[in-house]
């Protein structure tokens, strides 16, 4: 489904992109992502397709705002049945609750449900309306970190099962990782779209790299011409050898993966070696990183054997450094 919307107020914003399967619109806070969803739902004056000009009650969308907002005066099943009518509305609501795995909690009040459970009830309520398009606003915001990935995986699986195109807006890279399609927004414009695999392989800019949650995205400037080009990194007060096709003096955003950074031992010091202090070792389920202090900058590296307060010598191999014009 193609989305093409223009908002004039409270901020100016226009967006045009394709929604397929579970699509995530990734953007920083304040980009107007929530406004875009409200515009598509008909809750904000805007021009665009689909549903242009229709009042909200005539738009076939299922809208889940941030925090899911169940009706507090209605039980779980009554919330789901809100969009339903006729003598079988209770049975129908129970069927939807069963689909999201919450039939046992049908008689609970919203205040008696966890964040994840509320989200599933809100999803069931939105699906019961039989929408053509699902709109999710920051679906990860009210979730418990410990169960978040499971709740999200279930949400995405459910969305796939019902086969309704879904647009989720978020600033959370963890949600983006589960998308069928990514749409990236920066400076109130769509700056890149594509499959997560392709976007991760080729981020279109430093801003996209930051949105994707990549560590080690910095500002810098290129000096010298091809063959003897250097990347000046003012925050750390060093310059690194690089090879790019960009012109001398170009301001750039650049990135190096933590895994690409090498620890230097021994006496010979190759060009581009920098000194860094180990600030904090970080160990999590996802790996082992060290936060390193280089001048004013913090560099993350995948170092298994280092200790806090130790000073280390690092090399940042030029083939692993990616530069984008800033």
């Amino acid at each position: 489904m193609r989305i093409d919307y223009r908002i004039a107020r409270p901020i100016e914003l226009s967006a045009s992109f394709e929604v397929e399967g579970f699509t995530v619109l990734l953007g920083a806070s304040g980009e107007g992502k929530s406004l875009l969803l409200r515009a598509i739902a008909g809750l904000l004056p805007a021009q665009g397709e689909p549903y242009g000009g229709l009042p909200p009650q005539r738009r076939a969308v299922g809208y889940l705002p941030q925090g899911h907002t169940l009706f507090p005066h209605l039980r779980a099943w009554q919330n789901v049945a809100f969009a339903l009518s006729g003598p079988h509305r209770r049975d129908e609501a129970m069927t939807w609750l069963q689909r999201v795995g919450l039939a046992d909690l049908a008689e609970r009040w919203p205040a008696q449900l966890s964040g994840g459970q509320q989200q599933r009830v809100a999803l069931a309520r939105a699906l019961a309306r039989r929408p053509q398009l699902l709109l999710l606003d920051e679906p990860t915001s009210a979730l418990d970190p410990a169960t978040r990935d499971d709740v999200l995986a279930e949400l995405v699986a459910e969305v796939h099962a019902v086969g309704i195109p879904t647009l989720a807006v978020s600033h959370d890279p963890a949600l983006a990782a589960m998308a069928d399609r990514l749409v990236l927004m920066h400076g109130r414009r769509i700056v890149q779209t594509g499959r997560p695999l392709d976007v991760h392989a080729q981020p279109a800019s430093g801003a996209v790299a930051r949105l994707l949650g990549l560590r080690n995205v910095f500002r810098g400037r290129l000096a010298g011409t091809a063959g003897s080009q250097h990347l000046i990194w003012p925050e750390a007060g060093v310059s690194l050898p690089v090879k790019t096709t960009l012109a001398d003096g170009t301001a750039v955003d650049w990135h190096i993966a933590p895994e690409a950074i090498r620890l230097q031992h021994g006496g010979t010091v190759p060009a581009g070696t920098i000194m860094a202090g180990v600030e904090l070792p970080q160990r999590s389920a996802y790996g082992q990183y060290a936060g390193l202090r280089c001048g004013q900058a913090r560099l993350w590296a995948d170092l298994s054997s280092c200790h806090a307060a130790e000073t280390v010598r690092l090399s940042l191999p030029w083939p692993s450094i990616r530069c984008w014009p800033a």
Binding site: A41, G42, L43, P55, P56, Q57, R58, R59, V61, G62, Y63, P65, T69, F71, F82, A83, R125, A126, R129
Partner: peptide
């Protein structure tokens, strides 16, 4: 909360 009224609209009620 105004948002609840708006949700009710998006659920297809007048």
């Amino acid at each position: 909360p105004r948002e609840l009224e708006q949700i009710a609209l998006t659920l297809g009620h007048s």
